[in-house]
Design a protein around this nucleic acid. Structure first.
Lengths: 251, 251
DNA sequence: CGGGCCCTTGAATTCTCTCAAACAATGTGG
DNA sequence: CCACATTGTTTGAGAGAATTCAAGGGCCCG
């Protein structure tokens, strides 16, 4: 994958933030908005396939995804890769790196992406003067933990078919909550290799499993993505029910 | 497993806290200590096998493990169980329940356990008046996330033998950091069923894998536990290296 | 002393992986 | 504009890994 240099893009003012307008996300108080606006130091745009943060990076910045699809992953020394989770608009990334001093995983862009970049050194001010936002960051971390718990259950105990159905239903939900839909069927921007590396399966077996789902008419596989045609069926196959959607915080 | 009622035990004063004296954990400032001491509302003791918090519990309390071994898990409708992580002295549990309003996983005691119970309603005071402690709670959540990332990598991409070695090395490390050692070999308080449900393997295959490790002299399996004889060998088999031990926060 | 939990082992079956090959779509350089 | 490389998807076949089924022994507790 060729890595082009980050693109120059105009900074989005927090006042005009597209994400804030989504009903999924909760509203800031005026003082919080003022602080966050000051907390943000820039806009970052990367091409599809770029590594946004690499494992081992020291003191990386703190970002919120503004646009695009990406994923977090870890690799073993011999190259085996595990996708840990996907990152969508509104997601906070780099928290581990900021707290632990070093990133323990990498983040790669699937589509072109944009991020809001925050001033690392102001995080202590945030904790001292904006308890509400501090609480939100903890909430976000706990939420990620909850999702990882579910993935662990899925990889550890579900069959290949159930796992695939779970993942697609999960992503479908995430995409909807992140405002990545526009009426028609939800399109997930992932390749079969991503799915395989998320499910802990080989690419071949993943293909055969997805084929069965497509033959049943539950999904339609595209070049580099898939349309979810029957989300309820996916949930039913997986034996999974999404958490109640509630307004969630973001920075 | 018979569930006996919680035992009455004397409350441990934060001044006398055994965990605070371990070098693994960082020291409180006097004002923090005073606050935490007030934050703590009681001591809870449970028998081995008890369910400490059940999935679906509404507004559960916030606890810190004071003594004993336990584990967090989720189950599918048909009973398949996945162990998500183990809880040892110093670990905070119930954060998800407090933030999300409902527990998404259960916690069960392996050995008899004791907990410090905290006043849920004072959490907002903690965030407003003790930014340092608030930051610590976020740190703890991010740390759990990091561990889940590693487990996910392990279950998703390591072979049965590598997975087993990783888990035992991981637990060995955790036990050492939690002050559960006294000179001799580290004894992990888990059954093969726990290991199987953590690794996402069947009990039979887990047994055969552990047998190989025991035959190699890397571990010695006991009734309801195992002695780690050669931690370095486990790390080597798993291709894993523990994170640098650093002082970590706790509440 | 019976029942339950834990560990152990062998055998047959099922699931998943690796290997191999092929095709379509896209992008690149000449 | 075309040859060529690359990426992503698809399929079949054989090999390997892990599961289920079955059974037995040891230990503790009521």
């Amino acid at each position: 994958m060729v890595e082009l240099p980050p693109k120059r893009v105009p900074r989005v003012d927090c006042m005009d933030c597209r994400i804030r307008r989504l009903t999924t996300f909760r509203e800031f108080s005026p003082t919080e908005l003022a602080f966050v606006s000051d907390f943000k130091i820039g806009q970052l745009a990367v091409n599809a396939g770029s590594t946004v943060i690499g494992e081992g990076a020291r003191n990386p910045h703190l970002f919120t995804v503004y646009e695009g699809w990406g994923f977090r992953y870890k690799i073993l020394e011999d190259g085996r890769r595990q996708v840990l989770n996907y990152v969508l608009p509104g997601d906070l990334i780099g928290l581990q790196g900021m707290l632990m001093g070093e990133m323990q995983h990498s983040v790669e862009a699937i589509t072109p992406m944009q991020f809001c970049v925050f001033e690392r050194d102001k995080i202590s001010t945030l904790y001292e003067r904006h308890a509400g936002l501090a609480f939100d960051i903890t909430w976000i971390a706990a939420q990620e933990e909850r999702i990882l718990d579910e993935h662990l259950l899925s990889i550890g105990r579900r069959s290949a078919m159930e796992r695939a159905a779970y993942l697609l239903a999960f992503l479908s939900n995430r995409a909807r909550e992140s405002g990545l839909v526009n009426g028609g069927p939800i399109t997930l921007m992932v390749t079969q290799q991503h799915v395989a590396d998320t499910l802990g399966l080989s690419i071949v077996h993943t293909n055969k499993t997805l084929r069965k789902l497509a033959d049943r008419g539950v999904i339609r596989w595209l070049e580099r993505g898939c349309d979810v045609l029957d989300e309820a069926a996916l949930c039913q196959i997986a034996g999974w029910r999404p958490a109640n959607p509630r307004q969630r915080p973001f920075i």
